[in-house]
Protein backbone atom coordinates (compact mmCIF):
# COMPACT_ATOMS: atom_id res chain seq x y z
CA UNK A 1 0.00 0.00 0.00
CA UNK A 2 3.04 2.23 0.08
CA UNK A 3 2.66 3.08 -3.56
CA UNK A 4 -0.97 3.93 -3.18
CA UNK A 5 -2.09 6.76 -5.36
CA UNK A 6 -3.26 10.07 -4.10
CA UNK A 7 -6.80 10.21 -2.84
CA UNK A 8 -9.44 11.84 -4.97
CA UNK A 9 -12.51 13.35 -3.37
CA UNK A 10 -15.64 14.50 -5.14
CA UNK A 11 -17.09 17.50 -3.36
CA UNK A 12 -20.41 19.06 -4.32
CA UNK A 13 -21.36 22.60 -3.40
CA UNK A 14 -25.09 23.36 -3.11
CA UNK A 15 -27.15 26.37 -2.12
CA UNK A 16 -29.46 29.08 -3.44
CA UNK A 17 -28.32 31.28 -6.26
CA UNK A 18 -26.20 34.23 -5.28
CA UNK A 19 -25.08 32.90 -1.89
CA UNK A 20 -21.48 32.84 -3.11
CA UNK A 21 -20.75 29.21 -4.00
CA UNK A 22 -18.57 30.07 -6.98
CA UNK A 23 -16.89 32.87 -5.07
CA UNK A 24 -16.04 30.60 -2.18
CA UNK A 25 -14.59 28.03 -4.51
CA UNK A 26 -12.69 30.66 -6.40
CA UNK A 27 -11.32 32.16 -3.25
CA UNK A 28 -10.27 28.75 -2.06
CA UNK A 29 -8.67 27.57 -5.26
CA UNK A 30 -7.41 30.76 -6.87
CA UNK A 31 -7.34 33.22 -3.97
CA UNK A 32 -9.35 35.63 -6.05
CA UNK A 33 -12.58 37.48 -5.55
CA UNK A 34 -14.77 39.63 -7.74
CA UNK A 35 -17.85 41.61 -6.79
CA UNK A 36 -19.37 40.94 -10.17
CA UNK A 37 -22.13 38.41 -10.10
CA UNK A 38 -22.15 35.87 -12.85
CA UNK A 39 -24.64 33.04 -12.66
CA UNK A 40 -23.15 29.61 -12.92
CA UNK A 41 -24.62 27.73 -15.82
CA UNK A 42 -24.96 24.06 -15.06
CA UNK A 43 -21.82 23.50 -13.10
CA UNK A 44 -18.20 24.45 -12.85
CA UNK A 45 -15.43 22.08 -11.97
CA UNK A 46 -12.28 22.85 -10.10
CA UNK A 47 -9.43 20.89 -8.65
CA UNK A 48 -7.36 21.60 -5.59
CA UNK A 49 -4.68 19.55 -3.96
CA UNK A 50 -4.40 19.63 -0.18
CA UNK A 51 -2.48 17.80 2.50
CA UNK A 52 -4.62 16.13 5.11
CA UNK A 53 -2.77 14.27 7.85
CA UNK A 54 0.23 13.61 5.62
CA UNK A 55 -1.91 12.42 2.75
CA UNK A 56 -2.11 14.26 -0.51
CA UNK A 57 -5.74 14.73 -1.42
CA UNK A 58 -7.07 15.97 -4.74
CA UNK A 59 -10.40 17.67 -4.36
CA UNK A 60 -12.61 17.55 -7.40
CA UNK A 61 -15.00 20.37 -6.60
CA UNK A 62 -18.32 20.51 -8.40
CA UNK A 63 -19.75 23.97 -8.17
CA UNK A 64 -23.40 23.75 -9.12
CA UNK A 65 -25.90 26.28 -10.34
CA UNK A 66 -28.21 27.67 -7.70
CA UNK A 67 -30.78 29.00 -10.10
CA UNK A 68 -33.43 26.47 -10.71
CA UNK A 69 -33.49 26.89 -14.45
CA UNK A 70 -29.89 25.81 -14.65
CA UNK A 71 -30.30 22.80 -12.42
CA UNK A 72 -30.71 20.33 -15.19
CA UNK A 73 -27.54 18.33 -15.01
CA UNK A 74 -29.50 15.40 -13.79
CA UNK A 75 -29.73 12.96 -10.98
CA UNK A 76 -26.53 11.21 -11.92
CA UNK A 77 -24.62 14.39 -11.30
CA UNK A 78 -24.60 14.00 -7.52
CA UNK A 79 -23.72 10.33 -7.62
CA UNK A 80 -20.67 9.12 -5.81
CA UNK A 81 -19.93 12.34 -3.95
CA UNK A 82 -17.61 12.13 -0.98
CA UNK A 83 -18.82 15.29 0.70
CA UNK A 84 -21.55 17.86 0.25
CA UNK A 85 -21.11 21.52 1.12
CA UNK A 86 -24.28 23.49 1.84
CA UNK A 87 -23.97 27.26 1.54
CA UNK A 88 -26.32 30.02 2.66
CA UNK A 89 -26.05 33.78 2.70
CA UNK A 90 -26.19 35.16 6.28
CA UNK A 91 -27.89 38.28 4.95
CA UNK A 92 -30.63 36.36 3.15
CA UNK A 93 -32.99 34.36 5.41
CA UNK A 94 -34.62 32.60 2.45
CA UNK A 95 -31.32 31.03 1.52
CA UNK A 96 -31.10 29.66 5.05
CA UNK A 97 -34.62 28.27 4.85
CA UNK A 98 -33.80 26.47 1.64
CA UNK A 99 -31.04 24.45 3.29
CA UNK A 100 -33.42 21.68 4.30
CA UNK A 101 -34.61 21.15 0.78
CA UNK A 102 -31.08 21.24 -0.62
CA UNK A 103 -30.00 18.63 1.87
CA UNK A 104 -33.01 16.44 1.20
CA UNK A 105 -32.60 16.71 -2.52
CA UNK A 106 -28.97 15.73 -2.28
CA UNK A 107 -29.75 12.69 -0.14
CA UNK A 108 -32.48 11.59 -2.52
CA UNK A 109 -30.47 12.07 -5.66
CA UNK A 110 -27.10 10.90 -4.48
CA UNK A 111 -28.64 8.19 -2.29
CA UNK A 112 -25.46 7.57 -0.31
CA UNK A 113 -25.04 4.21 1.31
CA UNK A 114 -25.27 5.59 4.85
CA UNK A 115 -27.30 8.82 4.63
CA UNK A 116 -27.24 9.47 8.38
CA UNK A 117 -23.50 9.66 8.49
CA UNK A 118 -22.85 11.24 5.13
CA UNK A 119 -20.44 14.16 5.61
CA UNK A 120 -22.07 17.55 5.11
CA UNK A 121 -20.52 20.89 5.93
CA UNK A 122 -22.54 24.08 6.37
CA UNK A 123 -21.12 27.45 5.37
CA UNK A 124 -22.73 30.80 6.24
CA UNK A 125 -21.21 33.16 3.73
CA UNK A 126 -20.94 36.96 3.41
CA UNK A 127 -20.18 37.64 7.09
CA UNK A 128 -18.28 40.72 5.95
CA UNK A 129 -21.56 42.46 5.15
CA UNK A 130 -23.36 44.74 7.65
CA UNK A 131 -26.95 43.65 7.15
CA UNK A 132 -26.77 40.26 8.78
CA UNK A 133 -30.16 38.53 9.06
CA UNK A 134 -29.46 34.95 10.07
CA UNK A 135 -28.13 34.79 13.61
CA UNK A 136 -25.14 32.59 14.21
CA UNK A 137 -26.99 30.75 16.94
CA UNK A 138 -29.83 29.73 14.63
CA UNK A 139 -27.46 28.41 12.03
CA UNK A 140 -25.48 26.50 14.63
CA UNK A 141 -28.65 24.97 16.01
CA UNK A 142 -29.72 23.82 12.59
CA UNK A 143 -26.29 22.33 11.91
CA UNK A 144 -26.28 20.59 15.27
CA UNK A 145 -29.68 19.09 14.57
CA UNK A 146 -28.36 17.52 11.39
CA UNK A 147 -26.03 15.03 12.96
CA UNK A 148 -23.65 17.74 14.16
CA UNK A 149 -22.67 19.00 10.78
CA UNK A 150 -19.69 21.35 11.09
CA UNK A 151 -20.60 25.01 10.62
CA UNK A 152 -18.32 27.81 9.42
CA UNK A 153 -19.02 31.48 9.01
CA UNK A 154 -17.13 32.58 5.95
CA UNK A 155 -16.43 35.53 3.74
CA UNK A 156 -15.34 34.71 0.22
CA UNK A 157 -14.50 38.37 -0.24
CA UNK A 158 -12.19 38.67 2.74
CA UNK A 159 -11.05 35.08 2.65
CA UNK A 160 -12.31 34.52 6.18
CA UNK A 161 -12.52 30.89 7.29
CA UNK A 162 -12.47 29.63 3.70
CA UNK A 163 -9.27 27.64 4.04
CA UNK A 164 -10.38 26.16 7.37
CA UNK A 165 -13.78 25.23 6.02
CA UNK A 166 -12.38 23.36 3.03
CA UNK A 167 -9.78 21.69 5.20
CA UNK A 168 -12.59 20.32 7.35
CA UNK A 169 -14.47 19.28 4.24
CA UNK A 170 -11.47 17.33 2.99
CA UNK A 171 -10.85 15.79 6.39
CA UNK A 172 -14.41 14.62 6.88
CA UNK A 173 -14.67 13.26 3.38
CA UNK A 174 -11.40 11.44 3.82
CA UNK A 175 -12.60 9.92 7.09
CA UNK A 176 -15.50 8.42 5.19
CA UNK A 177 -13.21 7.31 2.43
CA UNK A 178 -10.84 5.39 4.68
CA UNK A 179 -13.47 4.05 6.99
CA UNK A 180 -14.52 1.26 4.70
CA UNK A 181 -11.94 -0.29 2.51
CA UNK A 182 -12.81 -2.76 -0.14
CA UNK A 183 -11.00 -5.95 0.58
CA UNK A 184 -9.78 -7.64 -2.48
CA UNK A 185 -11.48 -10.84 -1.64
CA UNK A 186 -10.64 -13.60 -4.00
CA UNK A 187 -13.35 -13.83 -6.62
CA UNK A 188 -15.23 -16.95 -7.39
CA UNK A 189 -13.68 -20.01 -8.69
CA UNK A 190 -14.94 -21.05 -12.09
CA UNK A 191 -16.23 -24.55 -12.27
CA UNK A 192 -16.40 -26.36 -15.51
CA UNK A 193 -19.78 -27.80 -16.14
CA UNK A 194 -19.71 -29.44 -19.53
CA UNK A 195 -23.44 -28.97 -20.06
CA UNK A 196 -23.68 -25.30 -19.39
CA UNK A 197 -20.22 -24.34 -20.44
CA UNK A 198 -21.14 -23.51 -23.98
CA UNK A 199 -21.37 -19.89 -23.02
CA UNK A 200 -22.59 -17.44 -25.50
CA UNK A 201 -23.38 -14.39 -23.48
CA UNK A 202 -24.93 -11.69 -25.50
CA UNK A 203 -23.85 -8.94 -23.23
CA UNK A 204 -21.86 -7.42 -26.00
CA UNK A 205 -22.99 -5.18 -28.75
CA UNK A 206 -20.55 -6.28 -31.34
Amino acid sequence: MATRKKVLLKVIILGDSGVGKTSLMNQYVNKKFTNQYKATIGADFLTKEVMVDDRLVTMQIWDTAGQERFQSLGVAFYRGADCCVLVHDVTAPTSFKSLDSWRDEFLIQASPRDPDNFPFVLLGNKVDLENRAVPQKRAMQWAASKNNMPYFETSAKEGINVEQAFQTIAKNALAQETEVDIYNEFPDHITINPDSRNVRNDNCSC
Partner: peptide, 20 residues
Amino acid sequence: EEKLVTLFGVMQALVSFVQD
Protein backbone atom coordinates in the same frame (compact mmCIF):
# COMPACT_ATOMS: atom_id res chain seq x y z
CA GLU B 1 -5.55 11.52 -15.34
CA GLU B 2 -4.91 13.26 -12.03
CA LYS B 3 -4.41 16.51 -13.92
CA LEU B 4 -7.54 16.01 -15.95
CA VAL B 5 -9.91 15.70 -13.03
CA THR B 6 -12.03 18.63 -14.13
CA LEU B 7 -12.35 17.25 -17.64
CA PHE B 8 -13.64 13.97 -16.25
CA GLY B 9 -16.20 15.94 -14.30
CA VAL B 10 -17.38 17.54 -17.51
CA MET B 11 -17.76 14.17 -19.17
CA GLN B 12 -19.81 12.84 -16.31
CA ALA B 13 -21.97 15.96 -16.43
CA LEU B 14 -22.64 15.43 -20.14
CA VAL B 15 -23.66 11.85 -19.53
CA SER B 16 -25.80 12.81 -16.59
CA PHE B 17 -27.45 15.68 -18.42
CA VAL B 18 -28.65 13.53 -21.29
CA GLN B 19 -29.60 10.69 -18.96
CA ASP B 20 -31.90 13.05 -17.13
